[in-house]
Design a binder for these strands. Structure first.
Lengths: 122, 122
DNA sequence: CGGTTATATAACCAATGAGTTCTATAACGC
DNA sequence: GCGTTATAGAACTCATTGGTTATATAACCG
């Protein structure tokens, strides 16, 4: 799986509120399918499906305890996800730095501010 | 929009590689639809649709420059997304701490390790 | 063995998503 | 006003998703 596909799977997995709730629960410790299905008013197969999605994203692994197959959270892909986000957030912040220096230039009177260049925010 | 729905929209927006590429491009500065459509071999309406998705997630705003409506990145939702991820990653790390102390207890001979409680990892 | 419990799989359905082409709207340049 | 350029929207297709119920598998319990 390419890094891009890994991010596809991770972000897609996190895009569903049920799956985020499952992860939040698993962050506190392993849990079986039945334990996960109970708090959500949702069928057992639905939870199994969500676990499969999380599994494909590498966010949970499954163990074995008698009939149970407890799910365990795996945080690796989360790190890759925050890395991606933070990377571009930093570049974006860098742009604001440049905008600040532009404003410095304007304030120093080197150019005529013909019109409000951009306070949009829209 | 509830916080959960905001995360839904943000993660869903980030789950598509084209949209991530668009964001990566916008992190370096505003760009028009045509400028964005060129590097991807993709129709103009497709890019407009992606921008709408990113817009609904609050990740881009649109300006006005003659006929152009340049897209600008907005980083706010990204912060909320990393906040969510890091929150549960930390809790998960906390669990490893607890597992370490459990192992300490076992090593100190306070309990009988009846069976390997859980080294799965699967 | 037979019944119960935990999980997975299959088949189905309604809704959504990502792309297309074609068309409408608007702001420009002359 | 007229042609061009930039964008948005409509209508369509096809694949995927999130849920359901019903069924199969498998490990336990007695």
């Amino acid at each position: 799986m390419t890094p891009s596909q890994q991010l596809d799977a991770t972000f897609a997995a996190l895009a569903d509120p049920t799956r985020r709730a499952i992860l939040a629960r698993l962050a506190t410790g392993d849990a079986s399918v039945m334990e996960l299905a109970e708090p959500f008013s949702m069928s057992q197969p639905a939870v199994s499906k969500h676990l499969k999605v999380l599994g494909r994203a590498g966010l949970v692994s499954r163990g074995r305890d008698a009939q149970r197959r407890p799910a365990r959270m795996e945080a690796g892909p989360l790190t890759e996800a925050t890395d991606w986000i933070e990377r571009y957030r930093r570049i974006w912040e860098g742009n604001y730095g440049r905008l600040d220096t532009l404003l410095d230039v304007l304030r120093s009177g080197k150019v005529e501010p013909s019109s409000d260049p951009d306070t949009t925010g829209d």
